[in-house]
Each structure stands twice: as C-alpha cells, then as structure tokens.
Write a protein that binds this DNA or RNA. Structure first.
Lengths: 143, 143
DNA sequence: ATACAAGTTAAAGTTAACTTTAAGTCAAGG
DNA sequence: CCTTGACTTAAAGTTAACTTTAACTTGTAT
C-alpha cells in the first residue's frame, strides 16, 4: 500500500507543506519518489509515528534529526539512541509532573471562583489566596 | 517588603527584560513605579504566580492578558473567569493524557533498545515494531 | 488536446515570545 | 563633581517552526 503526501498529511492532521518541511529537515528518511513525487509506504509510518510523539513532547527538530541520523547509521549507534531515549523519558516525566502541579492550581482556582460566584464577590476568598513571594512562586520555565 | 526587577527576575528565573516584556503586554497590572522604576510588592507575586502556571501550560500571552483584563474589571467578570479556568483545566488534563501516551512510547523504546543492545543488533526487535499506518499513527498536533 | 488538480523546489514571509541595542535617567560612593 | 551600576523606553533583531508564493511538472478527466 502506498500513500500520497496529501493522504499522509490528512492522516497525521498536518499540512502537506509541513511534511515537505520535515523531509527537508531530514526527519523522513527513505521516502520513495516516483516522477519526483513523494510516495509513502507502510515502513514510512514507523518514522512518522516516532516523529509524532517526539514532537508532542516538544523535542526540537534538530534533536529529532540527530536521533534519526543515529538510527540511519545502524547498530553501531544503539547505545547512543538508548541514552537519548532515556533522557527524553526523564524529560517527559518532568513535564507530566509540572503539569500535575499546574492542574492543582487550576483546580484551586475552580474552587476559588465557585465560592466567589456563590458570594457574588471575590472579597470572600481573596484573603485565602494571598501568597508569600518566596514560598509559592516557583520558577517560570525559560521558554 | 519591596523588590527590584532584577530580584524578581532572579526569583522567577527569567531575565529582567522578560518581565518588562510581560509588563508591556499587560500581564503585570498594578506594579508601582518610583522614579520611573518598577517596584514589586508582595501583592504582585499573586500575579507572577498566576503568570507562572499559565505559561507552563503554554497558554498564549494574549489569552493570559484577557484573563488579567477580566480580573481587573472586578466581580462582574467572575463567571467569565470561572469559564476560562475550567476550559484551561480541561486543556491541562488533555496535555497530561497526551504526555502519558508519549511516556509509554518512550518506555517501549527503552525496552526495545535494551533488547537490541543485548543482542548487538536491532534485527532482533525490528519485527516487533512494524506498525500499521492507520492503527498506530495518531494525530500530530498542529503546533 | 487541453484543462485541472496535485505534486515539486527555492526562497521569502509569518508568528510568538522573547532578547538585544541604543540612548538616556538616577542614586550612591569616592 | 564624576563615575558606576541598575534601571528606563522604543525599536530592531532573533529563533523555531512552519506557511506561502512563484514558477514549474505531471497524471487524469473531458
């Protein structure tokens, strides 16, 4: 089974131009051409899938490319790739942790506004939310 | 207690220029000035904290600003703010869910490379990872 | 045969979120 | 008095990740 760039783009929910861009960045190795046109095969979805979850964790394209390049080199890079995967796994764990903390803040705000709406004014809950600068402010991530 | 822009920047782990930028975007309402210089007070950390977790969930600055603007209008916007918070809470839940799926992929890859390294070659596990295009590829998020 | 839809490239344009630069103000120390 | 360091603004520059454009080719339908 083969697929046109449009078909793959639709499956992946991106624009064809995005796939061309990924290809030009070296993220889609080994995609066949027929008359200059990209023809996607089942094996290409292996990479598309990898691309998919690597992008979801906000891995920069340059880093994804280096992983792809390692994979292209074959068995001699197994350890390096393993190390990269482990590192990214830790990053995902950290991201999940951060988001869970944020979730708590939103749940708190949900309660806060529920109470405020009940009372018709924020004054009723404002005192509860006063924060000490040092204790409650954790770091804003650089990006 | 008051703080200079540099002190706050250090606490928040951002550049002073970033705080000026946030201020210029309307994200830091009510910061005092003395001789034209920003002087942060404890009450300002309430907003910095909100800014902090809103940025962590990748809420765009424009959307944060509209929340800040609603808050500035007072009690008449309580319901609107509640709705925004609820919406964002759902978004965070979705993000956590996505990341958990990604985590599984990385854990799988961890196992994959562990086996491959043991065997000295990927061939041993390659067949396990063949994917059907439709079943295993879920959508790449637009951004 | 011819028009049209879908593909191609290279290069320029876009957007968000900062960051840097240039030119200036101000308070404190020597 | 003068220098230094930390602040100020407005405006220009940066970066990543696309997206659009322009000019062109190709396969399919009428």
């Amino acid at each position: 089974m083969t697929y046109s760039i449009k078909e793959v783009a639709d499956m992946m929910n991106v624009e064809p131009s995005t796939l061309r861009y990924y290809d030009s960045m070296g993220l889609l190795p080994g995609v066949k051409r027929v008359n200059g046109r990209r023809v996607f095969e089942d094996k290409d979805f292996k990479w598309l899938r990898v691309l998919n979850y690597m992008k979801k964790i906000n891995m920069p394209i340059d880093k994804i490319r280096s992983y792809v390049e390692l994979a292209e080199k074959g068995d001699s890079t197994l350890q390096e790739r393993f190390d990269m995967i482990l590192e990214q796994k830790e990053i995902v764990l950290g991201q999940i942790d951060e988001l869970k903390k944020c979730l708590k803040e939103f749940e708190y705000k949900e309660w806060y506004y529920t109470e405020a709406i009940k009372a018709g004014t924020e004054k009723v809950v404002e005192n509860v939310t006063s924060c000490s600068p040092t204790l409650e402010v954790d770091t804003i991530p650089k990006n």
